[in-house]
Each structure stands twice: as C-alpha cells, then as structure tokens.
Design a binder for these strands. Structure first.
Lengths: 102, 102
DNA sequence: TTGATAGGCAAGCGAGTACTTGCCTATGCT
DNA sequence: AGCATAGGCAAGTACTCGCTTGCCTATCAA
C-alpha cells in the first residue's frame, strides 16, 4: 500500500512526470515524452515513460482514462497527504516515561 | 537534495525507524535495533540498521549527536514539508490555454 | 590493564530496478 | 483497404540497493 507510494516517488524521473502532470493534467504518453525531452533534457524511450506511468498509477498518484486511441493521465495528489500526516505528529522528547536511557 | 529525501523514504525499514524515532526521539543504535526486532519482528543485523540511519541522516530526516560512547538519534520532520508543498498546488484543468490537445 | 559495550569501515553477494529493443494490437485518417 | 498514430507486452542487460560478514576503533567499568 504505502510501499507502492514511496517506491513511486523514489525515482527522479517519476517525480518530474508528476511535476509536468501537475502543471498540465490530462496529458497523453507521447505528450509527456516530448515534454521530458524538451524541458528536462531527458532522452528516454517511450517504453520507459510508459513503465514509469504504470508505477505512478499503481501508487494511485496518476489516474488514466482511455478515449479512443488516446490515454489521458491525471494526477491524484490524495495519497501524498498520508506522508505528511504519518510523521508530523510531535515526537516525544528524548526522555520517555515508559523507558529509561540504556 | 530531494533525491536523498525520497530515496530515504523508499525503504519500509527506514520508514519504520522513522516511526520508532517519532514515538521516542533520541534513541541509540542498539535501542533501535532491539525495538525493530521486538515490536516489528525485523531481525536485521546492527550494521543494516546503522546503514539505514546513515541514509536517513543524509536525507536530513535524522540528526545524530554523540555523547561519550553513545550516539543519540533525533527525527527532523522539516524535510517532509517540501513533499506536500511540491505537488499540492492545484493542477491546471485538462484544457490548457498554452497548448491544444494533440 | 583487561574486558565488555557502542559504534564504524569495507568488501562481497543476491535481488530488485530502470532502461532498451523488438514485436504486436487498436484506433483513426484518406 | 492501407497506412500512420497511440499504446502495450515481454525478454534482456547494466546497475543500484539492502544486507551480511569480518575486522577495527573508542569509551567506560572492574
């Protein structure tokens, strides 16, 4: 569950894809491809991007809808909220009542 | 920069370590070790945990302070905020003024 | 000083990951 | 029909990553 999310974010190319989809939602595979090469000098094969999109989709960060021969990709930032909420609860101070220092 | 952060979060063991340090800040290496085995059934060598802590430290998520022969580890959630702020700006709708659908 | 405790360095191994290459399907235009 | 476009599937390769193992240093107690 959370595993897919963090694994998806681990790759810099995937993060760039998220950036691009955040700027403009609903892009097709080829559109994303050309944007990565144009704006980010990322000369990757179409397959590579397709695989990245699959990972992002498995993480729930991207949702794809098919229309005819086009497949549009949209971002879904909802899973990202879980990250912040996991560790942003205040940490207990160094001295914990339940346990003493070794 | 951001690379270290996301790479650090990519591993489930490291996330569990963050969980433990969030519950109780200022733990030593051995303390974290025993907690992982006791509470999470993670039978890892001390070296493995040490390496994980190094990665977390490189990401700025953990800060270590040495006192005598002990080394205490504290969480620093500050880098996590960057995640939320990166993609939580509203995405443009599918139709973008600057570019038409292919 | 001896021994035990807390931690560090570095080489090596197995599994996973990113990327390519080659081929195949489906939709749309003429 | 014929061809170009948009995308998918699968095998292969190079590299990274997590973990272990073995040995070494530093601090503290007896």
């Amino acid at each position: 569950m959370a595993d897919d999310l963090f694994k998806a974010l681990a790759d810099p190319t995937r993060r760039t894809i998220l950036d691009e989809l955040t700027q403009k939602s609903g892009q097709t595979l080829f559109e994303i491809c050309s944007r990565l090469t144009m704006k980010h000098q990322l000369n990757l094969s179409r397959q590579a991007i397709s695989q990245h999109l699959a990972v992002l989709e498995a993480a729930g960060l991207v949702e794809a809808r098919r229309e005819g021969r086009y497949k549009f990709h949209d971002v879904n930032t909802a899973p990202l909220r879980e990250i912040a909420e996991r560790w942003l609860t205040p940490a207990a101070p160094a001295q914990d009542p339940e346990e003493s220092t070794p």
